[in-house]
Simulated scan of single mutants.
Amino acid sequence: MPVPGAVRMACVTGGNGYIASALVKMLLEKGYAVKTTVRDPGDMEKNSHLKRLQALGHLEVLRADLDEEGSFDEAVAGCHYAFLVAAPVNLASENPEEEQIGPAVRGTLNVLRSCAKAGTVKRVILTSSAAAVVPSGRGSPRGDGGGRVLDEETWPDVHYLVANKPVTWGYCVSKVLLEKAACRFAEEHGISLVTVCPAVTVGAAPAPKVHISVPASLSLLSGDEASLGVLKGAEALFGGVPMVDVDDLCRAEIFVAEKEASSGRYICCGLNTTVVELARFLAHKYPQYNVETNLSGGAPVVREAGQGRVPVQVQDPR
């Protein structure tokens, strides 16, 4: 079915992912025509939610693969905005350079090449991560925490991460390098690029399966020790647990797409808390789950985000 010329069209990569599925839904609700990409459109176990979302508006589901140059050409053709959400995530990888970092950078550049070729894309919105903002560790020249306020000018020390290989180092490095590669490409090809760096993202989304942030945030209720370890790892990494609701994140992404003055990077964070404070909150709200509150951790640090660019206040975890 053809799309009327006056309708805004957006491409969202990785439509069977958690954040991307919520973004597709919100764009459709706002009247956008949407193209989204998945590796196998015929896999209904992963993509059934996209068929349901087609009831909300014009949604095309197209095949594309981050590893295949040119496979995003059809998806971005005719689009006004391209939301780059898909990226490889493998926190347990034993070879992050080959399995996460390299594919993340190559995949991002593959989509950007398609955007440059399309000639219709007014702005590219890259979903990165607050992991591309946090300090690298106490041994790094920039990573002592110490109550510093991190902002969009802050970057981890990649050399420190590669040399010392702390937990999730591959994920952090992949986000930093794909961001910087995207910025260079955008500058060289005259593409308007805006990057959003979300904190730990929580909340309901259409995708049938969720990974990492949602199971981690629910681990105090579920009792899943592995997921609780991820939550505690985030606390150690950030010096607290910065969180954002997935709908707020999607609203932010659409806002920076439409706002002509948007540029550079934006941290998206609605709340800074701790594992202990989360446990106390959940124990009070859901007493039937017998949430363990006798957890090690520092004093709770809870702040609501203000307007505009949102700094992440990092507490010294020592």
Rank of each mutant, 00 (worst) to 15 (best):
V200D: 03
S48K: 07
K175D: 08
R148D: 14
E304L: 15
I191P: 08
R265A: 10
V275P: 00
L278K: 09
S296P: 09
D316K: 12
C250M: 04
D247W: 03
E277I: 08
G31S: 11
F281G: 09
G190I: 04
K285V: 13
P287L: 13
K25W: 00
R142L: 13
V167G: 08
G102L: 03
E235R: 06
P300V: 01
V7D: 11
V105E: 02
N90P: 03
G190P: 07
G31R: 06
V167T: 14
A236Q: 14
L237F: 01
L178M: 12
A181D: 09
Y81N: 04
P2R: 10
E253K: 05
G31M: 07
A199F: 01
G146Q: 15
V176C: 11
T201R: 05
A305F: 08
T201N: 06
L56V: 05
G137R: 03
G42Y: 02
R113G: 01
A205R: 08
G298H: 10
D144Q: 15
E225R: 10
L109N: 04
S213G: 10
D247N: 14
G145L: 11
C172Q: 10
Y171A: 02
A234Y: 06
E304Q: 15
G119K: 06
P141S: 11
V301M: 13
G308K: 13
G223D: 15
R63K: 12
S296R: 10
S217D: 10
Q54S: 14
M26I: 07
T293S: 14
H58P: 00
P242W: 02
S128V: 05
L278I: 06
L218K: 01
G308H: 13
K180G: 11
C79F: 01
Y32Q: 08
L237D: 06
G42W: 09
R39F: 00
R39A: 00
D224Y: 08
G143V: 09
A186L: 07
L84H: 09
P208Y: 06
V314N: 05
E258K: 07
A6V: 12
K117Q: 08
E29V: 01
A236G: 13
I212Q: 11
V3D: 07
E179I: 03
V24W: 09
S48W: 02
N290C: 15
A216I: 01
L295D: 05
P287A: 13
S93Q: 09
C269E: 13
G78K: 02
E260W: 12
L53T: 05
A252H: 10
S227D: 14
P311A: 12
Q307K: 15
R106I: 00
A234T: 06
L28S: 03
G147V: 06
D144E: 15
Y160R: 00
A33V: 09
Y32R: 03
